[in-house]
Design a protein around this nucleic acid. Structure first.
Lengths: 149, 149
DNA sequence: CTAATCTCAGTATCACTGACATTG
DNA sequence: CCAATGTCAGTGGTACTGAGATTA
Protein backbone atom coordinates (compact mmCIF):
# COMPACT_ATOMS: atom_id res chain seq x y z
CA UNK A 1 0.00 0.00 0.00
CA UNK A 2 2.10 2.90 -1.26
CA UNK A 3 -0.43 5.61 -0.45
CA UNK A 4 -0.07 5.67 3.27
CA UNK A 5 0.29 8.77 5.39
CA UNK A 6 3.97 9.49 6.12
CA UNK A 7 4.82 8.69 9.74
CA UNK A 8 6.34 12.13 10.17
CA UNK A 9 3.00 13.68 9.39
CA UNK A 10 0.88 11.13 11.20
CA UNK A 11 2.41 11.98 14.57
CA UNK A 12 2.67 15.73 14.06
CA UNK A 13 0.38 17.67 16.42
CA UNK A 14 -0.20 20.52 13.98
CA UNK A 15 -1.10 17.99 11.28
CA UNK A 16 -3.50 16.14 13.52
CA UNK A 17 -5.20 19.32 14.62
CA UNK A 18 -5.54 20.54 11.07
CA UNK A 19 -6.98 17.25 9.84
CA UNK A 20 -9.45 17.19 12.70
CA UNK A 21 -10.43 20.72 11.73
CA UNK A 22 -10.92 19.75 8.10
CA UNK A 23 -13.33 17.07 9.17
CA UNK A 24 -15.05 19.34 11.65
CA UNK A 25 -15.39 22.07 9.05
CA UNK A 26 -16.94 19.67 6.56
CA UNK A 27 -19.51 18.58 9.13
CA UNK A 28 -20.40 22.14 10.07
CA UNK A 29 -20.66 23.33 6.48
CA UNK A 30 -22.87 20.37 5.66
CA UNK A 31 -25.03 20.93 8.73
CA UNK A 32 -25.56 24.62 7.98
CA UNK A 33 -25.90 24.34 4.22
CA UNK A 34 -29.54 23.30 4.45
CA UNK A 35 -30.28 26.66 6.07
CA UNK A 36 -28.03 28.58 3.71
CA UNK A 37 -25.88 29.75 6.60
CA UNK A 38 -22.19 29.69 7.47
CA UNK A 39 -20.16 29.40 10.63
CA UNK A 40 -19.86 33.17 10.94
CA UNK A 41 -23.63 33.55 11.01
CA UNK A 42 -24.06 30.90 13.66
CA UNK A 43 -21.38 32.38 15.90
CA UNK A 44 -22.87 35.84 15.71
CA UNK A 45 -26.42 34.70 16.36
CA UNK A 46 -25.31 32.62 19.34
CA UNK A 47 -23.45 35.57 20.81
CA UNK A 48 -26.39 37.91 20.32
CA UNK A 49 -28.92 35.46 21.69
CA UNK A 50 -26.93 34.42 24.70
CA UNK A 51 -25.34 37.69 25.69
CA UNK A 52 -27.71 40.22 24.24
CA UNK A 53 -27.18 43.01 21.77
CA UNK A 54 -23.75 44.50 21.29
CA UNK A 55 -21.83 46.72 18.97
CA UNK A 56 -19.86 45.09 16.18
CA UNK A 57 -16.47 45.47 17.82
CA UNK A 58 -17.76 43.72 20.89
CA UNK A 59 -19.26 41.01 18.72
CA UNK A 60 -15.93 40.44 17.08
CA UNK A 61 -14.27 39.94 20.44
CA UNK A 62 -17.01 37.59 21.58
CA UNK A 63 -16.79 35.37 18.54
CA UNK A 64 -13.14 35.60 17.56
CA UNK A 65 -14.09 37.24 14.30
CA UNK A 66 -12.24 40.10 12.74
CA UNK A 67 -14.11 43.42 12.73
CA UNK A 68 -14.14 43.45 8.95
CA UNK A 69 -15.70 39.98 8.81
CA UNK A 70 -18.28 40.98 11.40
CA UNK A 71 -19.31 43.89 9.21
CA UNK A 72 -19.91 41.61 6.25
CA UNK A 73 -21.70 38.83 8.14
CA UNK A 74 -23.93 41.21 10.09
CA UNK A 75 -24.86 42.82 6.82
CA UNK A 76 -25.92 39.48 5.42
CA UNK A 77 -27.93 38.66 8.53
CA UNK A 78 -29.60 42.05 8.43
CA UNK A 79 -30.66 41.64 4.82
CA UNK A 80 -32.41 38.43 5.86
CA UNK A 81 -34.16 40.13 8.76
CA UNK A 82 -32.35 38.01 11.35
CA UNK A 83 -30.72 40.94 13.13
CA UNK A 84 -31.32 44.67 13.37
CA UNK A 85 -28.64 47.32 13.33
CA UNK A 86 -28.90 50.88 14.61
CA UNK A 87 -26.47 53.65 15.51
CA UNK A 88 -25.68 53.90 19.19
CA UNK A 89 -27.24 57.19 20.34
CA UNK A 90 -24.54 57.62 22.99
CA UNK A 91 -21.59 56.95 20.68
CA UNK A 92 -22.03 57.66 17.01
CA UNK A 93 -19.16 55.42 16.02
CA UNK A 94 -20.88 52.30 17.25
CA UNK A 95 -23.70 50.34 15.72
CA UNK A 96 -25.64 48.22 18.12
CA UNK A 97 -26.78 44.89 16.74
CA UNK A 98 -29.71 42.95 18.14
CA UNK A 99 -31.23 39.65 17.16
CA UNK A 100 -34.82 39.66 15.86
CA UNK A 101 -37.57 37.14 16.58
CA UNK A 102 -36.93 35.67 13.15
CA UNK A 103 -33.28 35.44 14.10
CA UNK A 104 -34.08 33.56 17.27
CA UNK A 105 -36.18 30.97 15.52
CA UNK A 106 -33.57 30.69 12.80
CA UNK A 107 -30.96 30.09 15.47
CA UNK A 108 -33.08 27.31 16.91
CA UNK A 109 -33.02 25.66 13.52
CA UNK A 110 -29.25 26.05 13.28
CA UNK A 111 -28.78 24.68 16.79
CA UNK A 112 -30.40 21.42 15.82
CA UNK A 113 -28.17 21.08 12.79
CA UNK A 114 -25.02 22.04 14.68
CA UNK A 115 -25.82 19.64 17.45
CA UNK A 116 -25.85 16.65 15.15
CA UNK A 117 -22.52 17.75 13.72
CA UNK A 118 -21.08 17.47 17.25
CA UNK A 119 -22.26 13.91 17.57
CA UNK A 120 -20.83 13.06 14.21
CA UNK A 121 -17.49 14.68 15.00
CA UNK A 122 -17.03 12.74 18.23
CA UNK A 123 -18.44 9.47 16.95
CA UNK A 124 -15.02 7.85 16.51
CA UNK A 125 -14.19 8.40 20.19
CA UNK A 126 -15.48 5.98 22.83
CA UNK A 127 -18.13 7.83 24.81
CA UNK A 128 -16.19 7.64 28.05
CA UNK A 129 -13.18 9.38 26.52
CA UNK A 130 -14.99 12.28 24.91
CA UNK A 131 -15.04 14.42 28.03
CA UNK A 132 -11.34 13.84 28.63
CA UNK A 133 -10.57 14.83 25.08
CA UNK A 134 -12.65 17.99 25.21
CA UNK A 135 -11.11 18.94 28.52
CA UNK A 136 -7.61 18.75 27.08
CA UNK A 137 -8.65 20.39 23.82
CA UNK A 138 -10.09 23.30 25.77
CA UNK A 139 -6.83 23.80 27.61
CA UNK A 140 -4.97 24.07 24.35
CA UNK A 141 -6.00 27.70 24.03
CA UNK A 142 -3.41 29.76 25.87
CA UNK A 143 -4.61 32.20 28.48
CA UNK A 144 -6.10 35.25 26.75
CA UNK A 145 -3.24 37.04 28.44
CA UNK A 146 -3.43 40.29 30.41
CA UNK A 147 -3.26 43.19 28.01
CA UNK A 148 -4.76 41.48 25.02
CA UNK A 149 -2.32 43.26 22.80
CA UNK B 1 -16.54 41.86 31.14
CA UNK B 2 -19.04 41.93 28.28
CA UNK B 3 -16.69 40.46 25.68
CA UNK B 4 -16.59 36.92 26.88
CA UNK B 5 -16.96 33.84 24.73
CA UNK B 6 -20.57 32.63 24.77
CA UNK B 7 -20.88 29.43 26.81
CA UNK B 8 -22.68 27.72 23.94
CA UNK B 9 -19.61 28.20 21.78
CA UNK B 10 -17.03 27.56 24.48
CA UNK B 11 -18.22 23.99 24.99
CA UNK B 12 -18.89 23.17 21.35
CA UNK B 13 -16.52 20.49 20.03
CA UNK B 14 -16.52 21.86 16.48
CA UNK B 15 -15.74 25.32 17.83
CA UNK B 16 -12.92 24.07 20.01
CA UNK B 17 -11.39 22.10 17.17
CA UNK B 18 -11.60 25.03 14.81
CA UNK B 19 -10.05 27.45 17.30
CA UNK B 20 -7.23 25.02 18.00
CA UNK B 21 -6.71 24.80 14.25
CA UNK B 22 -6.60 28.57 13.90
CA UNK B 23 -3.87 28.71 16.47
CA UNK B 24 -2.04 25.77 14.95
CA UNK B 25 -2.27 27.29 11.50
CA UNK B 26 -0.88 30.59 12.72
CA UNK B 27 2.10 28.81 14.28
CA UNK B 28 2.80 26.79 11.13
CA UNK B 29 2.50 29.78 8.81
CA UNK B 30 4.82 31.75 11.03
CA UNK B 31 7.30 28.89 11.25
CA UNK B 32 7.40 28.39 7.49
CA UNK B 33 7.28 32.03 6.49
CA UNK B 34 10.98 32.50 7.07
CA UNK B 35 11.63 29.92 4.35
CA UNK B 36 8.94 31.28 2.07
CA UNK B 37 7.09 27.97 2.19
CA UNK B 38 3.57 26.84 2.99
CA UNK B 39 2.00 23.79 4.55
CA UNK B 40 1.42 22.17 1.16
CA UNK B 41 5.12 22.33 0.36
CA UNK B 42 6.10 20.80 3.66
CA UNK B 43 3.62 17.96 3.33
CA UNK B 44 4.79 17.07 -0.15
CA UNK B 45 8.48 17.20 0.70
CA UNK B 46 7.95 15.01 3.76
CA UNK B 47 6.05 12.45 1.71
CA UNK B 48 8.70 12.39 -0.99
CA UNK B 49 11.58 12.18 1.43
CA UNK B 50 10.09 9.55 3.65
CA UNK B 51 8.36 7.35 1.11
CA UNK B 52 10.32 8.05 -2.03
CA UNK B 53 9.23 9.35 -5.40
CA UNK B 54 5.66 8.99 -6.50
CA UNK B 55 3.29 10.24 -9.12
CA UNK B 56 1.12 13.22 -8.28
CA UNK B 57 -2.05 11.26 -7.69
CA UNK B 58 -0.25 9.08 -5.19
CA UNK B 59 1.18 12.17 -3.55
CA UNK B 60 -2.28 13.58 -3.16
CA UNK B 61 -3.45 10.45 -1.38
CA UNK B 62 -0.40 10.44 0.86
CA UNK B 63 -0.82 14.02 1.97
CA UNK B 64 -4.59 14.52 1.87
CA UNK B 65 -4.19 17.09 -0.88
CA UNK B 66 -6.46 17.38 -3.87
CA UNK B 67 -4.89 16.48 -7.22
CA UNK B 68 -5.33 20.02 -8.46
CA UNK B 69 -3.54 21.44 -5.43
CA UNK B 70 -0.75 18.92 -5.81
CA UNK B 71 -0.23 20.09 -9.38
CA UNK B 72 0.16 23.69 -8.29
CA UNK B 73 2.40 23.03 -5.29
CA UNK B 74 4.65 20.59 -7.15
CA UNK B 75 5.01 23.19 -9.84
CA UNK B 76 6.16 25.75 -7.31
CA UNK B 77 8.61 23.30 -5.77
CA UNK B 78 9.98 22.39 -9.17
CA UNK B 79 10.59 26.01 -10.10
CA UNK B 80 12.71 26.29 -6.98
CA UNK B 81 14.67 23.16 -7.84
CA UNK B 82 13.41 21.30 -4.78
CA UNK B 83 11.77 18.47 -6.73
CA UNK B 84 12.10 17.02 -10.22
CA UNK B 85 9.23 15.87 -12.38
CA UNK B 86 9.33 13.47 -15.34
CA UNK B 87 6.83 11.44 -17.32
CA UNK B 88 6.48 7.85 -16.22
CA UNK B 89 7.84 5.77 -19.14
CA UNK B 90 5.47 2.90 -18.27
CA UNK B 91 2.34 5.04 -18.05
CA UNK B 92 2.26 8.23 -20.01
CA UNK B 93 -0.50 9.68 -17.89
CA UNK B 94 1.64 9.77 -14.78
CA UNK B 95 4.42 12.13 -13.82
CA UNK B 96 6.82 10.81 -11.25
CA UNK B 97 8.04 13.38 -8.76
CA UNK B 98 11.28 13.02 -6.83
CA UNK B 99 12.93 15.20 -4.26
CA UNK B 100 16.30 16.74 -5.12
CA UNK B 101 19.32 17.20 -2.87
CA UNK B 102 18.37 20.84 -2.56
CA UNK B 103 14.90 19.69 -1.59
CA UNK B 104 16.26 17.43 1.12
CA UNK B 105 18.32 20.15 2.72
CA UNK B 106 15.41 22.56 2.41
CA UNK B 107 13.23 20.01 4.16
CA UNK B 108 15.76 19.80 6.98
CA UNK B 109 15.40 23.53 7.41
CA UNK B 110 11.61 23.28 7.45
CA UNK B 111 11.70 20.41 9.92
CA UNK B 112 13.46 22.58 12.47
CA UNK B 113 10.90 25.32 12.06
CA UNK B 114 7.96 22.94 12.16
CA UNK B 115 9.32 21.23 15.22
CA UNK B 116 9.30 24.39 17.27
CA UNK B 117 5.75 25.05 16.18
CA UNK B 118 4.80 21.71 17.77
CA UNK B 119 6.32 22.72 21.06
CA UNK B 120 4.55 26.02 20.94
CA UNK B 121 1.21 24.43 20.11
CA UNK B 122 1.34 22.01 23.02
CA UNK B 123 2.86 24.42 25.49
CA UNK B 124 -0.42 25.10 27.30
CA UNK B 125 -0.82 21.39 28.09
CA UNK B 126 0.95 19.85 31.06
CA UNK B 127 3.68 17.62 29.64
CA UNK B 128 2.21 14.47 31.12
CA UNK B 129 -1.10 15.03 29.36
CA UNK B 130 0.21 15.72 25.89
CA UNK B 131 0.47 12.09 24.89
CA UNK B 132 -3.04 11.38 26.11
CA UNK B 133 -4.35 14.30 24.12
CA UNK B 134 -2.56 13.29 20.94
CA UNK B 135 -3.75 9.74 21.31
CA UNK B 136 -7.36 10.83 21.47
CA UNK B 137 -6.90 13.42 18.74
CA UNK B 138 -5.50 10.74 16.47
CA UNK B 139 -8.51 8.54 17.02
CA UNK B 140 -10.81 11.35 15.93
CA UNK B 141 -10.15 10.51 12.31
CA UNK B 142 -12.69 7.88 11.31
CA UNK B 143 -11.45 4.69 9.74
CA UNK B 144 -10.46 5.39 6.13
CA UNK B 145 -13.21 2.93 5.31
CA UNK B 146 -12.95 0.01 2.90
CA UNK B 147 -13.66 1.20 -0.62
CA UNK B 148 -12.51 4.75 -0.16
CA UNK B 149 -15.52 5.93 -2.11
C1' DC C 1 -4.05 65.06 17.77
C1' DT C 2 -5.15 60.32 19.21
C1' DA C 3 -8.00 56.48 19.44
C1' DA C 4 -11.95 53.60 18.46
C1' DT C 5 -15.45 52.05 15.25
C1' DC C 6 -17.30 50.73 10.89
C1' DT C 7 -16.60 49.78 6.20
C1' DC C 8 -14.38 48.35 1.94
C1' DA C 9 -11.08 46.28 -1.03
C1' DG C 10 -7.94 43.01 -1.26
C1' DT C 11 -4.81 39.05 0.14
C1' DA C 12 -3.51 34.29 1.90
C1' DT C 13 -4.08 29.46 3.04
C1' DC C 14 -6.55 25.68 2.29
C1' DA C 15 -10.29 22.67 0.55
C1' DC C 16 -12.91 21.62 -3.31
C1' DT C 17 -15.47 21.42 -8.11
C1' DG C 18 -15.91 21.01 -13.01
C1' DA C 19 -14.03 20.55 -17.22
C1' DC C 20 -10.66 19.23 -20.65
C1' DA C 21 -6.87 16.62 -22.99
C1' DT C 22 -4.06 12.63 -22.76
C1' DT C 23 -3.32 8.03 -21.99
C1' DG C 24 -4.43 3.19 -20.50
C1' DC D 1 -16.45 3.39 -24.22
C1' DC D 2 -14.68 3.75 -19.55
C1' DA D 3 -11.25 5.08 -16.00
C1' DA D 4 -7.18 7.43 -14.29
C1' DT D 5 -3.98 11.33 -14.55
C1' DG D 6 -2.44 15.95 -14.86
C1' DT D 7 -3.85 20.59 -15.63
C1' DC D 8 -6.50 24.81 -15.40
C1' DA D 9 -9.93 28.05 -14.02
C1' DG D 10 -12.78 29.08 -10.60
C1' DT D 11 -15.47 28.86 -5.97
C1' DG D 12 -16.13 28.75 -0.96
C1' DG D 13 -15.09 29.48 3.93
C1' DT D 14 -12.15 31.51 7.01
C1' DA D 15 -8.49 34.54 8.73
C1' DC D 16 -6.21 38.70 8.08
C1' DT D 17 -4.27 43.51 6.33
C1' DG D 18 -4.49 48.25 5.15
C1' DA D 19 -6.77 52.27 4.44
C1' DG D 20 -10.43 55.66 4.62
C1' DA D 21 -14.42 58.03 6.86
C1' DT D 22 -16.71 59.14 11.11
C1' DT D 23 -16.94 60.21 15.75
C1' DA D 24 -15.21 60.39 20.76
Amino acid sequence: MPDELPARLRGLPTWMVSQAAVRSHRLVVHALSGSDARGHHYRLLVALHEQGSADQSQLGRRTALDRSDVAVAVDELERRGLVRRRRDPDDGRRKRVEITDAGISFLTELDTAISSAQDELLRPLPADQRQVFLELLGRLQPDPGGTGD
